[in-house]
Design a protein around this nucleic acid. Structure first.
Lengths: 225, 225
DNA sequence: GTCATTTTGTACCAATCGGTATGAAACTCA
DNA sequence: TGAGTTTCATACCGATTGGTACAAAATGAC
């Protein structure tokens, strides 16, 4: 009943996502966007509203596609597996050769002019939601006895998010996948997961001795936790 | 022999620094800058060259003033003291109420348009230099026996820089000083410094037993390192 | 006071910013 | 073959971008 559009909305959005990812919200001009998307300005505005709504749709797509692993990582039954999948998933996403380096959520608008403030706040909200999801997973792990009762899921989540965001910064600075893997290895060896693995060993010895999961604190655990 | 300038170059640069810190290089317009500095555009160009050279001078000042603690932190004789001063110093700088939140080096230009690419590369270089200095300090600590010989200063430096940059992201997102202190506490309790403190305890017991500093590895250290 | 020198404010530059008006082109339905 | 509807390309909008030309104003040297 009318003239059909000559471009694919999905692939155009995908192209816009990459431009925002590489240049940030303010650094991406409409000329950059339309050129990458292969469409004209009026087509962009008819299909996506304006620059800000286009960014929000690109952000949704980013979470669906590139951050899809997060949900399934957190759904892992054991905490150690969940955190490993989570951290390595982020490292892979931040250094995926088919996309710009780093993280859209940190690249998009860490600091910006007053005009882009709504976008910045949206990204802050997303980061907070990511941290909340991780916090919930850690709380669940503590309830399951995978973390000692005196551990603080909020503090651990903030710590892990800092490492993830730090990896995002380093990836945006040119760090390769190997460098990020090294950071994760250090984290897993000496950090929170040290406690987790110790806890796991304790749980195993408890199981072998047929003792309850929740019991007196181990001196070993006190050292690392 | 000529008309004297009516503004103080230093305080004007200080004002420009805060604008760049809050809005990033691209997000700070000349109108924003001149308004904050209290000078006109020709005065700015006469005194500072152009926008990019102004940013570089502001960046130098940032390192001199707000990052001055880094040098003295790394100069601490013991590694534990050095890293504590370093981490808490960054947390304080990122949440100093007299300046914008976060870190100029990450806020300035993580992702940007092609026009700002030289500035972005300058910031990448600065971050690399910061990491190199930390790496050198860790290598010195390993040579002094404060870290086990099999530890990797490069990996540890990348790990610590990730935490620092992650704190910068969270501060820019509105996290307060307490939140950053919590991240540091988690790092010190479970992370690299766990190894350091264990090592220190081992060294102390060695000293008490009048044994050499470098000896067989402790099983305790194997757990956390 | 006069000159040379530098800073100041104003007013401006071309280029680009995000966003649109307009009319031709392309489609479905009748 | 129209009528109706939507997308397309072009050309444009006012506002803002980084950057300057220019002349008045303010100084020290003579």
């Amino acid at each position: 009943m009318a003239r059909p559009r000559e471009f694919d909305v999905d692939s155009a959005l995908c192209a816009a996502l990459d431009v925002f990812w590489r240049q940030g919200f303010e650094g991406a001009s409409l000329t950059d966007l339309t050129k990458a998307m292969g469409i004209t300005r009026p087509s962009l505005y008819a299909a996506f509203g304006n620059k800000e709504t286009l960014f929000r749709k690109a952000l949704d797509r980013y979470y669906e596609v590139s951050m899809g692993f997060v949900r399934e990582a957190l759904a892992e039954p054991r905490l150690r597996g969940a955190l490993e999948k989570l951290l390595y998933g982020y490292a892979d996403a931040f250094t995926d050769a088919t996309h710009p380096a780093g993280c859209l959520t940190t690249n998009g608008a860490l600091a910006c002019s007053e005009a882009a403030e709504p976008v910045r706040l949206e990204l802050v909200t997303r980061r907070e939601a990511d941290e909340a999801a991780l916090r919930a997973r850690l709380a669940k792990a503590r309830a399951a006895g995978e973390l000692p009762p005196e551990s603080d899921p909020a503090a651990l989540a903030a710590y892990l998010m800092a490492i993830i965001q730090g990896m995002a910064v380093q990836a945006a600075s040119g760090a390769g996948r190997d460098a990020l893997y090294g950071i994760i290895a250090t984290t897993l060896r000496a950090g929170v997961l040290g406690a987790v693995s110790v806890q796991t060993r304790i749980a195993k010895s408890r199981k072998a001795a047929n003792r309850p999961l929740i019991g007196p604190k181990s001196t070993l655990r006190n050292v690392v936790m």
